[in-house]
Design a protein around this nucleic acid. Structure first.
Lengths: 232, 232
DNA sequence: CGCGTCAAGATCGTATATCATTTGGAATAC
DNA sequence: GTATTCCAAATGATATACGATCTTGACGCG
């Protein structure tokens, strides 16, 4: 009942604040809003055909999640990541993702392991004709297969947030450190073998953790050698 | 003018939205707003002598942080924690806090270790004439000494957020599981010994992790035996 | 006596309006 | 030519107003 169709459209079961949130977030995650991009309230409000109030709320949520930074009376911009923060985030991601992987290990079916191995094979195949962006995508998929079944949703959430922070860096470490990709594929296979053989969970956890820490070390070593990249 | 000390002054270097955020958060963390307490926008706005808009933004931020839950057209309330979520949060806290502790271990000065030991001695002394609330406070202080110097601010932040979630449960596990407190003190001393003797970082990490996991297991075992407590 | 319907109050959702702050550039003085 | 001051446009911050939705309890019917 109550066809109050005066204003034209119903709430669509989604508040405008929520719509704004998803809209902005999607644009950040898809890369259309690059790190440092300035989010102007009025402009976004016009594009979404809403007032600024819901947009403000959306940005506040994104701020609390760390996807955007905010300065009073100045505005919001897509969060940037500096080298030091990258290192810290990678380190914590190593710990959390390692734990998530080991917690998921005994739930891995042969099918899922096969799927992971397929992805890793694709990564190996792409080593010639190397495309960092593509490789990073596959890398993410590979690890997602290993931890997405994690029975602890809280840890899973932390892993996702960690990956989100990483996206602020254009194409992850593989863009900078050429040799790292090949080692990475080898370590992937090693992790899969551990899971298949039902190795001790701690061994799996440490393998996954050290895999990521090795990537981080490759990055920092490269930084040392070549001077800081233009990450700001 | 200035009927109330808070009205027409200058911005005081703090936006109203920010003030509302801190005000609500302080009330939640101090326990004045217990889990489940309903946060009514208009009421809070009147108490702070501001309009509802800044209050809304504050609550959005708190929502994104997980301190409050929100339902459309119904309102916000201080986040509650159910048993299953408690287990998941404790598990992730075990992992993160263990990592934080080991990362901080080699930065621990003899003074800080002594401070931690003093706190643990106080915990031991309070075992007779047991007060769960007091014991929980000391427990938090003890661990804080062990990880607050963590060089990775990101991990430190995660530890804090984990503890925040825990507060939603009245007085932690020590209220339920009488025997656990004594074991806890022993394990604390064990951790301190490991740090003092500069044991392998992994051993320290696992000791800290298992210490918390043991508390969790004591809780779940108690749950099994006595039926679910009234945690809602 | 129980259940459905409806109306009133409470509360949330959003738009509009106004004030405050920042920022960039033009005008002016040196 | 450079530096400084000041003004105006852009943008953010907040208040107020009104419509939408939910909750609650009264009322009538079976």
């Amino acid at each position: 009942m109550a066809l109050t169709a005066v204003s034209g459209d119903e709430p669509a079961a989604l508040s405008k604040s929520e719509r704004a949130y998803r809209w902005i977030r999607e644009r950040i995650e898809s890369g259309r809003y690059v790190p440092g991009y300035r989010l102007v309230l009025g402009q976004i409000a016009r594009e979404l055909d809403v007032s600024v109030v819901p947009v403000r709320e959306a940005i506040r949520r994104l701020e609390a999640e760390g996807l955007v930074t905010f300065e009073r009376n100045v505005g919001a911009q897509v969060a940037m990541i500096e080298v030091t923060e990258y290192v810290h985030t990678m380190q914590s991601l190593a710990i959390i993702e390692g734990a998530a992987t080991s917690l998921t290990a005994h739930l891995m079916t042969p099918e899922r392991i096969a799927a992971a191995r397929d992805i890793n094979d694709a990564m190996a195949a792409s080593l010639d004709d190397f495309n960092p962006h593509r490789f990073t995508e596959l890398n993410k998929e590979f690890h997602a297969v290993l931890y997405e079944g994690c029975p602890n949703p809280h840890i899973l959430d932390l892993v996702h947030k960690g990956w989100n922070r990483m996206r602020a860096l254009r194409d992850s470490t593989f863009s900078f450190v050429p040799g790292r990709a090949r080692d990475s594929v080898t370590e992937h296979e090693n992790i899969l073998t551990l899971i298949e053989s039902e190795a001790a969970l701690l061994d799996i956890e440490l393998a996954a953790r050290n895999h990521r820490l090795a990537t981080l070390e490759a990055f920092t070593a490269y930084q040392q050698a070549h001077g800081p990249a233009h990450t700001s």
